[in-house]
Simulated scan of single mutants.
Amino acid sequence: MDLSILGSGDFMHDWYVRTIRLRFQVFTGTPYAHVSPMEWRIDPESLRGIARSRGYLEIAPMFQGCLSFQYAPQYVPPVPVFDGPDRPDKDRERWLLNRLSGSDQVWISLKHANLSARRVAEVAEAEGLRVAADFGDPTDRVLLLSRNPAPPRLPLPTPNGLRFRYAWLNYIAPVTVLALLGASAVIVGSPSDYEAPIVNLLFLATFVSAVPAAFITGLFPRTTRVGWLAREFDGSLHVEFAMRSYRLPADLVVQIAAYHGYVFYGQSATQAGGPSLKFYKRV
């Protein structure tokens, strides 16, 4: 592709996609990684920096036109991931027990839980759940706790029929607000003009309330949003959603997607909806 035909915004989005894919789809902890700077269109120094952040040490090139790396976290410590406080906390552990009670599978955000991964694993094990997956970045760490910690069989089967997506709440909520408050304003103002100030207030409340309603999913706790996000990867061939829907770092989203057999391939953005991430199912 001729980069000269791309706008600066498109180029930055493309670069952003490629760097995330490198971090979480190439430098995954495998013993060796070989990357062509020309093929990935990333300058060698940036590429080396990404490798170091993932615990890889550069070695002599093993293939022409490639940079070669060996996974050596003992020599090149990767950027540490987030972890919560590693101390007993009865209130937070009680909250965790309530989340786990009667569940076969639960996603937990350590940033929201305010507990360390070790403490979460200990509490979960007492309830018969074990850590099935562990994803992290410097801002948060997400654990999947399950009674059956085996990874999912990939590729996931394609779902039958339409499934509810929690991202839809950001569209359903403002429409509901507009409908309810708009109808109330019409009903109150229908007998006469005497209630005109009330009608005006209702119409004003309608438009003022519709804006925050478009971000309603962000009002839910982080752990809840992580679970909703994981449900997006339900076996559909293509998955796309706005980042505002779940308000989680793209690095974490890409890792959760990969666990379900999805590859991050693009990003788009609109003035109204903001950036969206795109994934396809690996078959």
Rank of each mutant, 00 (worst) to 15 (best):
V283T: 13
A214Y: 11
L204H: 01
G273F: 14
D234H: 04
A173C: 15
V106D: 00
L181N: 04
V253Y: 05
Y246A: 10
V175E: 04
V79C: 06
L145I: 01
T224I: 05
V123C: 00
Q25T: 11
T19K: 09
F27L: 11
P149N: 06
P197N: 09
S268G: 15
P37M: 13
D83K: 02
N160E: 15
E195A: 09
P152I: 06
M12H: 10
R165Y: 09
F164E: 01
L219R: 10
E195W: 01
Q271C: 03
L248F: 02
G102S: 11
R87E: 15
A60F: 05
Q255A: 03
R130H: 03
V120A: 03
R244D: 05
L47P: 08
A117C: 04
A132K: 06
L219Q: 03
D251C: 08
F24H: 15
G7H: 10
E127D: 02
S276A: 14
V26S: 13
G29F: 03
L6V: 05
L22E: 06
F164W: 10
P159Q: 13
P80D: 02
Y32S: 11
R231W: 03
E125K: 04
R231K: 11
G261S: 12
I20C: 08
A173H: 11
D140G: 00
V81H: 12
V239H: 05
L144C: 00
P44A: 02
I20V: 12
L154V: 13
P80T: 00
P78F: 10
K281F: 02
L162H: 11
G274C: 09
V177Y: 02
E122Q: 15
L129V: 05
R130A: 00
Y166S: 12
Q64C: 10
I256W: 03
F69Q: 12
L115R: 01
W107F: 08
Q70T: 11
Y265I: 08
I42F: 10
H238A: 09
Y16D: 13
L143W: 01
C66L: 02
L252R: 10
G235Y: 09
V254M: 14
S103L: 01
L180A: 13
P73A: 09
V226W: 01
V208S: 14
D14A: 14
A124H: 04
I108M: 00
V142G: 04
L100Q: 02
P155E: 05
G29K: 00
F82Y: 15
T19E: 07
L156E: 10
A167E: 11
Q267E: 15
W228P: 06
R118A: 03
A185Y: 10
